[in-house]
Each structure stands twice: as structure tokens, then as C-alpha cells.
Amino acid sequence: MDAVDQQSMTGAVIKEYRLDLAQLWLEFVGLGGDASEQLIRDYCAGDAALPAKERDALAQAVNEHCAAVGLPLRAPLSESALFLLQPERHDPERKDPYSSK
């Protein structure tokens, strides 16, 4: 997955659920993340980049938090295949399997 796509999708989950970034940062550090809380805030705002290891630790923290409280959306990992999440970006001619047409 492209780093920018992962960043925007992770940020969207955080924003959608109004997740507490301070709490997420603690969970991120517990999972081996090494970025400062301010850098995580900047990343989520789209103002900074993170290496894949850090992006994945944050996505994992988001996903574990969402799973613990029963929220359905998840943040993608760097190895996620974006075209599986959004088929139209991979192949615009591909039919929607949920469409009745």
C-alpha cells in the first residue's frame, strides 16, 4: 500500500471515531512504536510522514482499540492490498459484486 493512502485511511478511522490520540500514542508505544506523540499528531493531520514500521504500529494500535470497543472500521497495514479494499482504483472496468446490474 502506498504510504499516503495508508496515512489518509488511518487518519480517517481516527477522525471518524474521534479516537483520543494521547491514548492511541500510549498503545502505539506499547506495540513498539518509537515516534513522539507530537509526530503522531502531525502524521494524523497529514503534516508529517512515518516509516512503514511506525505506520503499522499506529494502525495496529488503532485496530486493537477499535476491536476492543466493537467498532467496525480498521486502519490498513503497509502490506495491505489497496485494490482489495477499493477495486475501482485497481480496475475501473471491474463490475461491483454488490451491484444488481
Rank of each mutant, 00 (worst) to 15 (best):
residue 67 A to V: 11
residue 37 E to I: 11
residue 59 A to I: 07
residue 63 N to Q: 10
residue 35 A to H: 02
residue 16 E to V: 11
residue 101 K to V: 12
residue 80 S to R: 07
residue 67 A to Q: 09
residue 40 I to E: 06
residue 94 R to A: 14
residue 26 L to W: 06
residue 85 L to I: 11
residue 80 S to L: 02
residue 82 L to H: 04
residue 99 S to C: 10
residue 59 A to F: 06
residue 87 P to V: 12
residue 18 R to Q: 14
residue 83 F to N: 09
residue 10 T to S: 09
residue 72 P to G: 06
residue 30 G to I: 03
residue 15 K to R: 15
residue 65 H to N: 13
residue 42 D to H: 02
residue 90 H to W: 13
residue 72 P to E: 06
residue 11 G to D: 07
residue 85 L to F: 10
residue 20 D to L: 01
residue 78 S to N: 03
residue 56 D to S: 06
residue 51 P to H: 11
residue 48 A to R: 04
residue 98 Y to E: 05
residue 69 V to R: 13
residue 23 Q to V: 13
residue 62 V to G: 07
residue 74 R to Y: 00
residue 78 S to K: 02
residue 75 A to V: 10
residue 18 R to T: 11
residue 10 T to V: 02
residue 48 A to C: 03
residue 100 S to D: 12
residue 44 C to G: 02
residue 49 A to T: 15
residue 95 K to P: 05
residue 1 M to C: 04
residue 67 A to S: 11
residue 52 A to T: 14
residue 8 S to K: 05
residue 83 F to Q: 11
residue 4 V to F: 07
residue 54 E to I: 04
residue 50 L to N: 02
residue 71 L to P: 05
residue 37 E to A: 14
residue 75 A to Y: 07
residue 77 L to R: 12
residue 10 T to R: 00
residue 79 E to I: 10
residue 48 A to K: 02
residue 10 T to G: 00
residue 22 A to N: 11
residue 83 F to D: 14
residue 98 Y to H: 11
residue 4 V to S: 08
residue 24 L to W: 02
residue 21 L to T: 15
residue 23 Q to G: 09
residue 9 M to I: 12
residue 18 R to P: 01
residue 22 A to S: 14
residue 44 C to M: 13
residue 33 G to E: 02
residue 70 G to Q: 03
residue 6 Q to D: 04
residue 4 V to L: 10
residue 18 R to I: 03
residue 81 A to W: 05
residue 65 H to Y: 15
residue 61 A to V: 05
residue 30 G to T: 03
residue 82 L to Y: 07
residue 46 G to K: 01
residue 30 G to L: 02
residue 28 F to G: 01
residue 32 G to Y: 04
residue 76 P to F: 06
residue 96 D to M: 01
residue 30 G to Q: 02
residue 79 E to Y: 09
residue 6 Q to G: 06
residue 3 A to I: 03
residue 89 R to G: 00
residue 95 K to W: 09
residue 55 R to G: 08
residue 13 V to Y: 03
residue 75 A to G: 02
residue 55 R to Q: 14
residue 32 G to W: 01
residue 82 L to V: 06
residue 45 A to Q: 11
residue 94 R to S: 07
residue 86 Q to D: 15
residue 63 N to G: 09
residue 79 E to D: 13
residue 89 R to V: 14
residue 77 L to V: 06
residue 24 L to A: 01
residue 79 E to S: 14
residue 64 E to A: 12
residue 62 V to S: 08
residue 101 K to D: 08
residue 61 A to N: 05
residue 76 P to L: 09
residue 23 Q to H: 13
residue 79 E to G: 07
residue 78 S to D: 08
residue 96 D to I: 08
